[in-house]
Design a binder for these strands. Structure first.
Lengths: 171, 171
DNA sequence: CATTGACGTGTCAAGAGTGGAATGTAAAGT
DNA sequence: ACTTTACATTCCACTCTTGACACGTCAATG
């Protein structure tokens, strides 16, 4: 359950409201972790009950600005240093590859080439994002850059693989 | 909810019991889709209710061998050709990268190098698996080979990226 | 013949995640 | 003054997933 740690991590940079966090999930974390608004608000409530965050200020429109507490920072650090990342081996698009035998060779190749196209577009999107982001010295963006590079390499690899796989099916 | 399609896909190759399916999930599909036994048996029940699979034979120890039906095959085909793969942008290990700023540079580099090691081991594991699998002309294994190649490329890329990222943090 | 291990099915509780709806306030543009 | 847009929270109903538990059978081994 890393949603909890995603929220704590974002709050470790600066205090934020649920609404602010949603925007961060949609922008900086969009390729890394997704969350719905129900989840974010729910998690903030649980986190507050557990004393890992607290309401630091209240603003207009019922805005509640949450800040991470010391126990929260400790939990975050513990997660980073003491726990193993859980790898969820689950990929819809790769699962389909297993069952491509049910299609005609032409259909299967089409599927793979569509995947390649998609990966290519994604790569272009990331490169565009990289160029347009203001890389200030926000500590989050330093490491965000590393994550973005990962995304670029991943989509490049995906595209190459899909083209290779389509080629394999010809033979 | 692709668990349903994973089960249908496996049954499209040949009839199987819940127990058989579990083994297939743990072996051939292990790097692509995971499922627990509760899920498999539960899904088989739902699939049978929906008429997408049927009990083709009963064996010793209460064994029920399920077979895919024509509506099931249609559903599988529909999934493969008409629906978009859902991309779950969620990666625990990448999420951590975002928050590496909370650690000392040394700790952060350690994290990345550990990731590199892990990816390297995974790659070795896949290569070992590739060598030891009997590549008969099972239609599943033809495409399984493509998926395996994807895994190899992914882990290679992951390792390279992690080493590169660790290097970046030195500067 | 007794035990062990592989085979085999099933249920339950709790938590995680999805998607949508309801409700309202503040600020900014026309 | 009016309307739109952005801000902001909360609740609900549902499905998916996990992990553990409970139950029972067949085959081989010593």
């Amino acid at each position: 359950m890393s949603l909890r740690h995603a929220v704590l991590g974002l709050l470790s940079e600066r205090p934020a409201s649920g609404y602010d966090l949603m925007k961060l999930f949609e922008t900086s974390l969009s390729h890394v972790w997704s969350a719905t608004q129900s989840q974010v608000y729910g998690e903030l409530g649980k986190l507050a009950d557990a004393g890992l965050v607290e309401v630091a200020a209240e603003g207009p429109r019922g805005r509640k600005e949450y800040a991470i507490t010391d126990p929260g920072r400790a939990e975050l650090r513990h997660w980073l240093t003491e726990t193993e990342p859980t790898r969820t081996r689950r990929s819809d698009s790769l699962l389909r590859v297993f069952f491509l035998g049910l299609l005609t060779p032409l259909e299967a190749q089409t599927y793979l080439l569509t995947e390649a196209e998609r990966a290519s577009r994604q790569r272009a999107g990331l490169e565009h994002a990289e160029a347009s982001i203001e890389w200030d010295d926000d500590p989050l963006s330093v490491h965000g850059r590393l994550a973005l590079e990962y995304g670029k390499r991943l989509s490049a690899m995906h595209e190459e693989w899909a083209r290779w796989a389509a080629e394999q099916l010809k033979a």
